[in-house]
């Protein structure tokens, strides 16, 4: 066991992946000489060489597509797109190739590709660098979306994603990089289940990624049970429904926008699976439906915050 930050955990996971499997390589903008935009791959160019730690031009569409091709060709690429915002430039390859190839080819071609990207707001980076599009990706059959919210998941999810024969997007919330926790060095985690992060009796708070610490803080005030979805596609609703059968109330917390968002999907599934167990309407706390503004006070007002979650939960408790 050792105490490490989320950033160090990502780094340890990446290092282990490169060290254990020669098919694994890292490709993306500034992953090599620069050491990674978030310093996750610092030192790895020197250790693993330029073939396996590969600086790419600002060509998201081509290098994500090349990652797909390399995966088809027998490699296990980890493609790093600097942020979820820039992943939009690679959408065609992610959606029209990676996600479709297996089904469309009648099961002949799998794409064992991992795409890492940071996501989320909270650092005054303004509207074009503060998106949370992981919920969008969760709309698409054929890819898996994971959102490590704990240091343990930051440490272990990459290995699980690389073991998966299909494309996996890893959405790492930029606000979590400095969180610290004790982690088992060789920890193994799955990318199939949601998990109870705090037990409680009065209300179920369902969340993921950067909103987990906020939900945990809110839970202290309302005796909340906190479920970390961990995997946004395919969703594991079992622990969510089990919890709601106990608490009979649920608030979904999602940094994505409200309309047509992941929170809406989770609420629909709760309504389908546990309607008669509910004692109150479902509630959600999402980002306000505005482009994320630059000034700190406005950015904070746009995002889910602990008081909003507490208020939403108390609204259900009557």
């Amino acid at each position: 066991m050792s105490v490490m930050s989320y950033r160090e955990a990502l780094r340890a996971g990446l290092h282990e992946a490169l060290a254990r499997d020669p098919r694994v390589f890292l490709m993306g903008e500034d992953v090599g000489k620069y050491g990674g935009t978030y310093a996750v791959s610092k030192g790895m160019l020197a250790e693993f060489g330029p073939e396996r730690v590969r600086d790419a031009p600002l060509s998201e569409l081509a290098f994500v597509g090349a990652g797909i091709g390399a995966a088809l060709g027998g490699m296990r690429p980890i493609v790093e797109v600097m942020t979820v915002n820039f992943s939009l430039l690679a959408l065609d390859q992610i959606v029209n190739s990676a996600a479709l190839l297996r089904h469309m080819s009648g099961g002949q071609f799998s794409v064992p590709l991992v795409i890492r990207m940071t996501t989320g707001a909270g650092r005054q980076l303004a509207a074009q660098h503060s998106h949370s599009f992981e919920g969008w990706y969760a709309h698409i059959p054929g890819i898996k979306i994971v959102a490590p919210a704990t240091v343990e998941d930051a440490r272990g999810m990459l290995a699980a994603a690389l073991d998966d024969p299909d494309p996996v997007i890893v959405a790492e919330h930029a606000q979590l990089f400095e969180t610290k926790s004790e982690v088992d060095d060789g920890v193994k985690v799955d990318i199939a289940s949601s998990k109870v992060r705090r037990s409680g009796g009065k209300v179920t708070l369902v969340t993921y990624g950067g909103s987990l610490p906020k939900a945990l803080a809110a839970a202290e005030e309302v005796d909340g049970e906190v479920i970390d979805l961990r995997v946004l596609r395919p969703l594991d609703m079992g622990p969510v429904l089990d919890s709601i059968r106990k608490t009979r109330r649920a608030v979904v917390v999602d940094e994505g926008w409200r309309s047509g968002g992941l929170a809406a999907e989770v609420m629909a599934r709760i309504a389908e699976g546990a309607f008669y167990d509910l004692d109150a309407p479902l509630a959600r706390v999402c980002s306000e439906e505005v482009p994320i503004p630059y000034p700190k006070h406005l950015e904070e007002a746009a995002l889910p915050q602990v008081p909003k979650i507490v208020a939403a939960a108390r609204g259900l408790l009557g």
Partner: peptide, 23 residues
């Protein structure tokens, strides 16, 4: 490897296949 119906969609796949071969 397809049969790609997005114009230009096959080009990066070929680049990636070639990268895999090289590596």
């Amino acid at each position: 490897y397809g049969g790609n119906a997005i114009v230009g969609g096959g080009l990066p796949l070929a680049v990636g296949l070639a990268l895999a071969d090289r590596m």
